[in-house]
Design a protein around this nucleic acid. Structure first.
Lengths: 219, 219
DNA sequence: GTCTATAATCAGATAGAC
DNA sequence: GTCTATCTGATTATAGAC
């Protein structure tokens, strides 16, 4: 550990040092960037606008994030950090936890909007977030397959396996977010996601159809 | 009918008149715009780039579409026209037709990409395509509910109704497109959509589970 | 670390010639 | 109808003072 690192650690502990202030600044910038990306998209967001909302000049911002692309990477990493507890513990999750996450998102349209806008943007050529989303979806599909296997075993309705149902689960979450953002009065994201879970839970792959309709009226 | 309209009709019939050439130009511009929006997004696409690909100057383009926003409206209308036959006949569709549409889309990544990018973009503030997508999703949900009712009746697996399953169907289609665009080698969009249909068809609301597992091994 | 000043580029749109 | 020329404004990024 270098002398500088010791200072940094000490500063962080004290909570009011140089490094702590630096971290605060970075957080403020990332927060502003997230909001503006939600409002105007990545390409539509200017560094000057982010800087203004964060309370500094464009050039001051560039001191913390040397380029617009690095700022985007910062935003994505922050989002990852934000639900890291979630992602890391996915193996132990259940479908109720997923439903809870959807309900939680329903109370945070801004975050959902940032995600939806960037995900759509990411499929364009040479997009700085493309790699991030490609990896993310692989990870999410694997995690969801694990959840489904834990919950329902190897055989799901319609002859599906957890691995084949996982992309559908991810797709439903994203697709519902889009419809909900566009028309929140018309689309009840939480209820709709519950409906999909009912679809996965009803009439299991064991060929036992006696459970059909049971416990599915939580509308 | 005015004298001018008569001339226009005559021109159109002859196939080589002024109006026909004008229409050709517009088509070329719209085609170029669609491609570039797929590649770079709406905000990332410049009029000059569209014009160059269409074989004229930016100012020539502005003669046909007076503003960038009107060009986007043109693109969306063209897309509507493109699958108008589909949308109009939705009432008579069946789920096989939907599966066929998904398979058709799987062969046209460019079109899917334009749609995905614009849909994500549309949730940003004051986006010129927002209204279009809001209306489109309402229409699609209604159409899909009709398809499901025709096919499966009023009761679906998991205690769902056609109206409650419709947003899920739309969500799955959009969500799968996103995952497929990002990772075509990993995500088999057509097979996955078939899986979802199996989910809707298996163990129906009537309690008849005898069809479970049939025709679902097209992995 | 944050600022002012500014470079270098590119955007969408207009005016007017042909 | 399509062009050349031009305007106006915004963008990312750099240089250097404090």
């Amino acid at each position: 550990m270098t002398a500088r690192d010791q200072v940094r650690t000490a500063d962080h502990r004290s909570g009011g040092g140089r490094e702590a202030r630096r971290a605060e600044r970075r957080e403020a910038i990332l927060q502003a960037a997230m909001e503006l990306i939600a409002e105007r998209g990545y390409r539509g967001t200017s560094l000057a606008a982010v800087a203004e909302r964060a309370g500094l000049t464009q050039q001051g911002l560039l001191h913390h994030f040397p380029s617009k692309e690095l700022l985007l990477v910062g935003v994505l990493e922050a989002r990852d950090r934000w639900d890291t507890a979630a992602a890391a513990a996915t193996g132990a999750w259940r479908t109720d936890t997923l439903a809870g996450l959807v309900e939680y998102n329903a109370g945070r349209p801004g975050v959902v909007q940032t995600y939806t806008v960037l995900a759509g943007d990411s499929v364009t050529e040479d997009h700085p977030a493309r790699d991030f989303f490609e990896r993310r979806f692989r990870r999410v599909r694997e995690g969801l397959a694990g959840v489904l296997r834990t919950e329902y075993g190897d055989r799901l309705p319609g002859g599906l396996t957890p691995e084949r149902a996982a992309p559908l689960l991810a797709a439903v979450m994203d697709g519902l977010q889009l419809q909900w953002l566009l028309d929140p009065a018309e689309v009840d994201m939480t209820a709709a996601f519950g409906d999909f879970l009912a679809l996965l839970g009803a009439a299991g792959g064991e060929g036992d159809a006696s459970a059909v309709g049971a416990g599915t009226d939580e509308s």
